[in-house]
Structure formats: structure tokens, C-alpha cells
Design a protein around this nucleic acid. Structure first.
Length: 937
RNA sequence: GCCGGAGUGGCGGAAUGGCAGACGCGACGGAUUCAAAAUCCGUUGCCCGCAAGGGCGUGUGGGUUCAAGUCCCACCUCCGGCACCA
């Protein structure tokens, strides 16, 4: 009884492929062969094992990989693990198990599950970001960043040794030069405010802080400054933005990245801060004269309040200035009688996380500093306020407030009763009362009155620059990348801090020699965070912590890198995973890069993809990689939701309550599909049709209990069924709900494929008696070649659902055939192979062909079988379908028309009518348009 | 609020401006069977009709076109993301 048993054949072929090295990739593509680098976003090996979302993208790339291999392309298709990360560390804190142990266990689970699904990875290239050899090169790349400065003139990263040293610095000695270099490196240290939660003893990410307290436990969080490693990604902001242009990425993802980078153009303008005593006008005039001579300074002295605006055309509408609570000039601007109010406000602001401060629902707050600055164009005195809606970290940390033409300024002015001065009118129509944020024409703007926004901006920026009062400027929302974490389970920084005889840092930093890499994690038994934001590594033994070099004593950097570090370059290491001499052989890099197809979830649209592009560009600038961009084509697989659910609501008082009337007090109850029916737009209870029921699929989650486990699906249906189902569900990029019945459907299809070839009633595994060596008929060949053609084109377009539908049609065509020619079945099995590789290998063997079908040549489509001799053409009268005629495939418009007119039914409809026009599209359709008022009734 | 994406049978979904609903699930009917499972064959958008046939139909309202799910305008709903960036 040889039925289709995936549990028997799947492990068999997985073992076969492994034993024969079927998917091992050579170091370089063979001469003359095309190459394809097909990459999945490697998973974080969580303790829960694989989720059904993982195999969706993995199957898609695997089908392409197998397809390309069969077409003779050299395929790079690797897999690895993004294994540093928080969950392993928290598990370690709870259980005392070292993170490396649990991580290795989880990787073993993931590896087993991935192999169970028959993906054609070259497992010889497997890597984990936690492998000491991998960490070695991650640290090495950090040292490249440390050794690089960004030359704004050429827009490229260059070796720090090439950084021009200003004469004044050079004259100040070696220490000053070293400091100057440190300030220009792409990896640099700075004091940055972080969210410190004393109760949890850890620093939290912004996302982990809600309403000023920790997400977990609800403990207070304070903002404290901490010395952090930063990466100067902002230097590359412009290139990261512009170089998205040529990429084959979804436009939506490009836009997300552009919005994240947030490039805006406008102008910087200096407002004069008058001296506390003396003649303000005279001082202002003197300042202007001085500026006209010296020009606009790159960094503002403390006699000006510098602001950035995207709308310099609203300069005449400024009614106040607002600075961030952290603004450096705030002390100087605060008058004695306002000192206390300002101090209180600042203190309150410092306690808030960024998240609270940007809560839109909140009323605007602020305090007047008591002082005024002088408007550079009008000479008017403008009051200066402090408010936390202005962010210290963007632009200059201060703004000019134009209530008439900016939402936030308008709201602020309303709250505090400040003046609103209209200086822009819409191009169409007259003045607008109150707020108008659009572009338009300037009014009451001195010499600029009457200019339209664009012209105004251009002129005023040029005038300001000529007068040394401002200049055109570009700003980015993107901030430098805070790169250090106070965590154990991450890559240690290959950095040494010089210490004095009392182990106090001298401020001198020294990179670890390349030959000494990797810097290993120290052995620790206690991973718990402490009472201070000191990283766990600071509790390492002295033998790890302190080292001597050239007679000086150093303490190791005890922060670790964030999880993103490893995923920034893994796609490069896959190409040359065993190289002990360098991170990647340039010959190999040039042969395989860039990645031709990168598939993964949209949750990485910004961070991972932006960080990886940044590192790649630095490596490119420094000559280590040949392409400026790593990922040529990107596709995001859609999310797989849980099964569709029907939810009714039980009223607190008892009985059902209709879904649209429910309140928080009513209890949701999950209903079986039989109790529900559709009525018009909504689902209702079958027994009580007045009660509406919600129908929706939800994201899979443990708490909802709708998580589908791939192990169970494979056990019940087989890996090929899981692969095929996930591809058949719908378009790769769409969000779609899981349906176990649907898995059963594709399993039935695979059963039918099996029976097409195998005799199920025999005792042994033998060919079905219908399988014969007859030549295939013309009709059969047409069916076959059309199927091959469609599947080929659909794989190229990643439209796997329709490719599978076409294969199903082909099987439906073959099943009733009493004689099934091999010439039909063998090409079908090869076409099936990328989708259901185990079944295809087994059928290939039953057909008596030499394994593996996985490397058999992809069948060629013969054009002549795609053409029909006759076609059925729809005939319309007045655009309505009224009949069909069969005509030769090459019939022209005239022939079509006469054939259609000859059809009895059409002739009857046309009898006695005046034909105004006939539209005949050869091979498509015929439409008779009747003269007006003559439409048949 | 802003920015994406999507609205097509009971469900998942097909459809270069040219026969709406391919393919699958479910449902119904038949064959097979002592029976059931499995399998095979068929029907299945809605309404009227015994039928032939006819009418309606791709979120809503308008428009372009011989012809619109597809193009244009306005709106509604759902999903996802961002969110005081001056």
C-alpha cells in the first residue's frame, strides 16, 4: 500500500542531499555562469522555535534558488543565526544558565526545523553572530569605523590618518591632535541622556518606557547622562537618502527610510542677543556691521540665538522665540526674576522621557525667560520662551515661532496669549483668519512682500548669507546611532581605556590590535544588573578587565554592542565564512555581491536595513567591498495571521449583545463557524440574527492561543504541504490568515500528484499502470507547455500562488487520462521540484530517472505549443456579452467581425439595427455598437 | 493628524482596460462501499424562471471609454507604520 507518506520520504531525501552535497556552493561561480545571491533575513533563535511566519519568506527564496539552479545559475543561498540578544540574557538572569548555552540549544532547534523543511541552503556556510570567529570580524569592522572620518567635501569615509589637522590644533601638541581625531571618527564617545530605571537596575530603550515609568513593573525611570559609543550615521544621511533611488525595493520601504532620515531644507538664522546693559540698537548695528565683514560663523558664539527653519519666508511673522529646556544659552537668557520658574520647568522636563514629551494630546507648556533677542531683518525685540515641544536634539535646539503659519506655534501662542501676525496669503483667495500652513504669497514682509514662497526662500537665504546673518541649511531627523548597551550578551568593544595609577581613566583610548581579536566575553556567573548603570562586564575579573600595553595600564571597554551589529554584515561573511585571514576575500566579494534578492519581514524596513546600508557604505569607502549598496532587490513577505475567528459578546447583564453596541463590560466569546451566518454586510448569530458578530483574523500570539506550530503541521501534513500551502495562501507580500483546512487542500493536491505516477494499489512502490511511453498528443503538449510557461514566468515574478494554481490545473487535466505519457509526467515533476522538492525527488526515482531532480535541467518551453489553432472569442452588443464564436487564432478584425455577425443569435440581435461602430480586437473580442436610440430593449 | 497598503462569492484568493470570480477551502449532489473514511465525477456569485433565457453584481458616489475590479475625481471602512523634527 504505497501511499504518499511525507514522514518517510522527506527525511530520506534530506539525508540524500546532505550526503551528496547537492546544494554546496563553490567558492566562485563557474566561469561563464550567471550568479544569484538569494538571501533570507536570518532569524533570532528564540526559545519558542520556528514560527510559521519564518518559512513563508524562506520557502519563497528557496523556490527561486532551486529554480535558478535548475536553469544553470550559480546560486548562493545561505542561512545563519542572529544570536545575540535580550531574551537569552534574561533567561540567563532568571536561571543562571550562561546565555551561550541556551543560545546553542535554540540554534540546534532552529537548525533541525529548517532542515526538516527541506530548504536548499549550503549548510557549510552556516554562521551565528555569536561565534567567536564571527565576533572577531564584527569587532574588526568596528575598528574600521573607529579608524574612519567622513570627508564632507568628497562625501566619503577616509582613514583617520588622512584627516587634515588645523594648524592651531597641531601646534597644541599630540594630545590635542588625538582629541581632534577622536572627535571626527565615525565611532566616537559622547555623553548622552539615557533612560535609567533604578528599580530594574538597567537602562531601557525608549520603547520600554511608557508614561515615565518602566513598561515592565511600572517603576520610575529617570534620564541620566551616560558616556556612550555613538556611530556617526548622520554623516551618511544624504547618501543613505539619495542612493535609495536605484534600488529594486518596494517604494513604501524606500519612503519609510526617507521619512526616517527626514531630510529637510531651509535656513539657519542668527537672532542677536543684546548685552544686558547699554544701547541695544547701537549694539545690534555694530553686530550687523561686524557680521557683514566676517560672514556667517560655522558655530555660533553666545551673542546670538541660532535657529533653523524650513520656512524662512515667514521671518516677518515671528512673534517669539522658543528654545528647548536643554538649550545651552538658556541660563544666559534667563532674567533673575524668571530664574526660579525656569529652573522648575527645566527640572520637570528632565524627568520626562522623550515619549511623554512628544505626546501630541498634551497641552503645550512653556515659560518666558524674561529676555528678548533682536530680529536680524526688522530689528524688533522678540521675547524668548522655553518650551519642551522644541527638541534640543534637532536643528539648533531653538526655533523662531510663527503662530500664523505653523500648527505647533499657533497652539503655543493660543495657550499663552501671544501675538499672531499673518505674513502669508494663499495664492487663491484672500487672507486667512488665524492659521495657514500652506505655501502662498508674502504680505507685510518688507522688501519681500508679494513674493511667492519658493522665490522668497531663495532670495532671503541669499540675502542673509550675504549679510552674514544666516545661510541655507539642510537638516535630518536621523540621529547618530547610540551603539553601546549595558548588557552582557553582545560583542565586547575592542577598545582599551588608559587608566592612571588609581585606575581612573585618563581619557586616552586605544584600539585593540587586529591580531588580538576577538576580544572574548569574560566568564561571568552573575548576569544580573547592578544598582548603577555600570555594565555587567565591569564585574569581570581583573585578568579580563585590565591589560598592559607598551608599559601603560588599560581598562577594557565594558559596554557591549547592540544586537544590530551582527546583522549589519552577515550577508558578507556568508560568502567566505571560513576565512581566517580577513573578513572577506575581495575576489569572492566581487563575484557574488550584491545580494540579488533579499526577503524578510517589513519590521526591518528601517533599522536593520538602514544600519546595514550604513556599514556597507563605510566598507565601500574604505575599499573593502565593491558596491555602494548591499541589497539590490528587496521583498517583504506579509504577516501570517491566526485562523479567522468569530467573536460574539455576552452582556454583563446576561444574554448576547450585538457587536456594534458592546462596551468594555461585555465579555467576548469565540464562536464556532456553524453558529454564525452572513447577513448583508455583517455576520450574525444564526439563531438570533439581530445579534452581530465580529469576524476577523488576529496576529498570532501566545496569549490569544492561536499560534500555529510548524512541527505539528509537518507531522500532520508533511513539509512539502507546509511549503506549498504557505506559497498558495496568496501573494507573498500580502497579510493573510492561516487556514488548517487550506493545508489539507494542498496536501490533497500532493496526494493527486503521487497517484499520477505511483500505483497505490500495488504492494510495492511501482509506476501506476496508466504511465506509458506513448508520445504525448498535441493537446497534451499544449497543456504541458502552457503550464511550464506560466510556472516559469510566475516564479520570476514571485507569484507562487498562481504558479501552484496552474500546476493544480495540469494535474486535474492529467488525472482522468487512461494513458499518461512519461513525456508529460517527467517535465511536470521537474517543475514541481522547487515547490515540493521531497515529493518530486521520490516521484523522479519511481519514474526511474537518476537523482537528484533538484539539479535536473528546467524544461524548455516550446513556443509552438503556446499557440492555439482556433480561439473562442466573446461577442458583445452594446458592451454586453451576447455570444461566442470560434475563429482561427490568426483571424484579423474583418474576419472576426463577419464571423460574429454570422452567429445566429448575434444576427438576430443586430437585425434591423444600425451599426454605428464595430470594435474588433483580434484574439480578444468583438463589440457591436448600435446607433443611438436603437439599443435592443 | 500624517504617510503607506487593502476593500471582489460563505472563506483564502484569480483577472496585460477586453468573457469577473482561475485555483483551493467549504457546501451540495452522484459513483464506489454492507457502512464509513479515502477516492473519482459533477454543481456551486445573487435574484427571477421548469427551461431557454433574462436582470443585478468587484466598499460608496460621480467621471473617462465602444468596453472599467483595473484609469481619473470625491468619499467611507479596515489594516500597518510614523508621530510636536520647526
Amino acid at each position: 500500500m504505497p501511499r504518499y507518506q511525507p514522514a518517510r520520504i522527506e527525511p530520506k531525501w534530506q539525508a540524500w542531499w546532505e550526503a551528496h552535497g547537492t546544494f554546496a556552493t563553490p567558492r566562485l561561480p563557474p566561469p561563464g555562469a550567471a550568479k544569484a545571491y538569494l538571501l533570507d533575513m536570518f532569524p533570532y533563535p528564540s526559545g519558542d522555535g520556528l514560527h510559521v511566519g519564518h518559512p513563508e519568506g524562506y520557502t519563497a527564496t528557496d523556490i527561486v534558488a532551486r529554480f535558478e539552479r535548475m536553469r544553470g545559475t550559480a546560486v548562493m543561498h545561505p542561512m545563519g543565526f542572529d544570536a545575540f540578544g535580550l531574551p537569552a540574557e534574561e533567561h540567563a538572569i532568571r536561571t543562571g544558565t550562561p546565555p551561550r548555552e541556551s543560545t546553542e540549544r535554540n540554534i540546534a532547534t532552529f537548525r533541525r526545523q529548517l532542515k526538516m523543511l527541506g530548504f536548499s541552503y549550503d549548510w557549510g556556510r552556516e554562521l551565528a553572530t555569536t561565534d567567536p570567529e564571527y565576533v572577531r570580524w564584527t569587532q574588526w569592522i568596528f575598528l574600521v569605523l573607529f579608524d574612519t572620518w567622513f570627508d564632507p567635501d568628497t562625501q566619503r569615509g577616509r582613514p583617520i590618518a588622512e584627516l587634515p589637522i588645523p594648524p592651531a590644533i597641531a601646534a597644541a601638541g599630540e594630545a590635542a591632535v588625538a582629541r581632534y581625531r577622536d572627535e571626527h571618527r565615525l565611532a566616537y564617545q559622547s555623553e548622552a541622556p539615557v533612560n535609567w530605571c533604578p528599580a530594574l537596575g538597567t537602562v531601557l530603550a525608549n520603547e520600554e518606557v511608557i508614561g515615565g515609568v518602566s513598561e515592565r513593573g511600572g517603576h520610575p525611570v529617570v534620564r541620566i547622562p551616560l558616556r556612550q559609543w555613538m556611530l556617526r550615521i548622520t554623516a551618511y544621511a544624504d547618501r543613505l537618502d539619495r542612493e535609495l533611488d536605484g534600488l529594486g525595493w518596494p517604494e513604501s520601504i524606500k519612503k519609510l527610510q526617507r521619512d526616517w532620515i527626514g531630510r529637510s531644507t531651509g535656513a539657519e538664522v542668527d537672532f542677536f542677543v543684546p548685552p544686558a546693559a547699554g544701547d541695544v540698537t547701537a549694539a545690534f548695528e555694530a553686530w550687523k556691521r561686524q557680521r557683514a565683514e566676517s560672514g556667517y560663523p560655522a558655530t555660533p558664539a553666545d551673542d546670538v540665538l541660532r535657529i533653523y527653519t524650513t520656512r524662512p519666508d515667514t521671518l516677518y511673522g515671528v512673534t517669539c522665540m522658543v528654545v528647548a529646556p536643554e538649550h545651552p544659552l538658556l541660563d544666559r537668557l534667563t532674567t533673575p526674576d524668571q530664574r526660579e520658574a525656569i529652573a522648575t520647568y527645566r527640572e520637570a522636563a528632565s524627568r520626562k522621557s522623550d515619549l511623554d514629551r512628544t505626546d501630541l494630546a498634551r497641552e503645550k507648556t512653556g515659560v518666558f525667560t524674561g529676555s528678548h533677542v533682536i530680529h536680524p531683518l526688522t530689528g524688533a525685540a522678540v521675547p524668548v520662551w522655553v518650551a519642551d515641544y522644541v527638541l534640543a536634539s534637532y536643528g539648533t535646539g531653538g526655533i523662531m515661532s510663527v503662530p500664523a503659519h505653523d500648527d505647533r506655534d499657533f497652539e503655543f501662542a493660543k495657550t499663552f496669549g501671544l501675538e499672531v501676525t499673518t505674513v502669508i496669503e494663499p495664492l487663491d483667495g484672500g487672507p486667512v483668519e488665524g492659521l495657514f500652513t500652506g505655501r502662498g504669497r508674502a504680505v507685510a514682509s518688507g522688501p519681500y512682500t508679494g513674493l511667492e514662497t519658493a522665490a522668497f526662500i531663495e532670495r532671503v537665504a541669499a540675502d542673509l548669507e550675504a549679510a552674514g546673518l544666516g545661510r541655507p541649511a539642510v537638516n535630518y531627523k536621523l540621529r547618530d546611532w547610540l551603539f553601546s548597551r549595558q548588557r552582557f550578551w553582545g560583542e565586547p568593544f575592542p577598545i582599551l581605556h588608559e587608566v592612571d595609577s588609581h585606575d581612573r581613566p585618563t581619557g586616552v583610548v586605544r584600539p585593540v590590535e587586529e591580531a588580538e581579536l576577538p576580544v572574548p566575553l569574560p566568564p561571568l556567573t552573575d548576569f544580573k544588573p547592578g544598582d548603577t548603570p555600570d555594565p555587567p562586564l565591569s564585574r569581570a575579573g581583573h585578568e579580563w578587565l585590565f591589560v598592559e600595553r607598551d608599559g601603560r595600564r588599560y581598562r577594557r571597554e565594558t559596554n557591549t554592542m547592540p544586537q544590530w551589529a551582527g546583522s549589519c554584515w552577515y550577508y558578507l561573511r556568508f560568502l567566505d565564512p571560513a576565512n581566517t585571514e580577513r573578513f572577506l576575500d575581495p575576489e569572492v566579494e566581487q563575484a557574488w555581491m550584491p545580494v540579488d534578492l533579499y526577503v524578510g519581514g517589513a519590521e526591518h524596513a528601517v533599522l536593520h536595513l538602514l544600519y546595514a546600508r550604513f556599514w556597507h557604505k563605510v566598507l565601500h569607502d574604505r575599499g573593502y567591498v565593491s558596491h555602494p549598496e548591499p541589497f539590490g532587490r528587496l521583498v517583504n513577505q506579509g504577516m501570517i495571521l491566526g485562523e479567522m475567528e468569530f467573536t460574539g459578546y455576552r452582556a454583563a447583564a446576561g444574554g448576547w449583545i450585538s457587536a456594534e453596541q458592546r462596551t468594555e463590560a461585555d465579555t467576548p466569546v469565540r464562536l464556532p463557524a456553524e453558529q454564525v451566518e452572513k447577513q448583508g454586510e455583517h455576520f450574525v448569530l444564526r439563531d438570533m440574527p439581530t445579534i452581530r458578530v465580529e469576524s476577523r483574523a488576529y496576529k498570532m500570539s501566545k496569549s490569544r492561543g492561536n499560534v500555529v506550530n510548524p512541527d505539528e503541521v509537518v507531522r500532520e501534513f508533511g513539509a512539502d504541504s507546509l511549503r506549498l500551502y504557505e506559497m498558495f495562501m496568496g501573494p507573498l507580500e500580502a497579510t493573510k490568515p492561516w487556514s488548517t483546512a487550506g493545508v489539507g487542500g494542498v496536501r490533497t493536491f500532493l496526494d493527486r500528484c503521487w497517484r499520477l505516477v505511483v500505483d497505490e494499489r500495488a504492494d510495492d512502490l511501482v509506476l501506476a499502470p496508466q504511465v506509458v511511453d506513448d508520445p504525448a498528443s498535441d493537446e497534451q503538449l499544449r497543456e504541458l507547455h502552457r503550464m511550464i510557461d506560466k510556472v516559469t514566468r510566475d516564479i520570476e515574478a514571485l507569484s507562487f500562488n498562481t504558479a501552484i494554481a496552474r500546476m493544480m490545473e495540469f494535474v486535474n487535466f492529467c488525472t482522468p487520462l487512461p494513458r499518461r505519457p512519461r513525456a508529460l509526467l517527467e517535465p511536470f515533476v521537474t517543475v514541481l521540484a522547487p515547490f515540493a522538492p521531497h515529493l518530486a525527488e521520490e516521484l523522479w526515482e519511481v519514474l526511474g530517472r537518476p537523482a537528484p531532480v533538484s539539479l535536473a535541467p528546467w524544461p524548455t518551453v516550446e513556443e509552438r505549443w503556446l499557440r492555439d489553432e482556433t480561439v473562442e472569442i466573446p461577442v458583445q452588443v452594446q458592451g454586453k456579452l451576447r455570444g461566442r464564436v470560434v475563429v482561427p487564432a490568426d483571424a484579423d478584425a474583418t474576419a472576426l467581425q463577419s464571423a460574429a455577425a454570422a452567429d445566429p443569435r448575434i444576427a438576430q440581435l443586430l437585425a434591423g439595427r444600425t451599426i454605428a461602430k464595430v470594435v474588433a480586437v483580434p484574439g480578444r473580442m468583438v463589440n457591436f455598437v448600435l446607433a443611438k436610440s436603437e439599443s435592443p430593449s
